[in-house]
Amino acid sequence: MAGVNLKIDGVEIEAPAGENLMQAAVRAGVRVPGLCQLDGLSVVGACRMCMVEIAGTPRPRPACATPVGESMDVHTDTPRLREHRRVLLEMLFAEGQHICAACVASGACELQNLAAELGVDHVNFTPPPTRLEMDLSHPRFGYDPSRCVLCTRCVRACAEVEGAFTWGVAGRGRETHLVADLGVPWGEAESCTSCGKCVSACPVGALFEKGTSVGERRVPRALVSTLTARRERESHREVLK
């Protein structure tokens, strides 16, 4: 496969064709922030946090959903992009209810890390008229819609890696939330195998292990990526035999 030559933040690199800009950036030693992307899962380009500027293109593009192109000149950290990310982040905070000091994910939360990185520490928000309640019906796990950033990583982990297709998205606007099976409490979802892959994939504290308290998130977030990478490797071995 022929390599593609491009420049990311001034660093010249060669990346395999078909790779996306987020992956390619890693070759240049650059980490592009993103929430909905998780190695091993399909790309949805939903969160818009990974927007980058490409010289000659009028509007920023999501790095996770843009394939590398020959001679591209990509900038991942411009004042405009920073501003864009900050606004996005504030919106995410404002749509939910994030009290890190009471959250299982505090200290291991991708949203919180982004906020620290981008210097967001205050959010103006109007409390929603109706609060979405926590779903604690599952014997092992809980779901808190007020902390969900709707990245759908859990939906994809469940469908693509576990093959259970338990999770879906329902509702509109502020009321958008996850549903298990056809809208039953999680604990009653027959398709759920209780494997916990969704919980491990969640970037924030929206999915968690029951009985855990502040800052106690234990599930390794790379679980899904590790599993998919391993499967890939093993299937190659099959082919070689």
């Binding site: 009290i99 009471a102 609060r131 309640e133 926590m134 604690l136 809980g142 009985g211």
Partner: peptide, 15 residues
């Protein structure tokens, strides 16, 4: 606090 998990209550009340 309504609808939150009892495990969060020590932290929530402290806030």
């Amino acid at each position: 606090c309504r609808g939150r998990s009892v495990y969060e209550m020590p932290a929530l009340t402290a806030r």
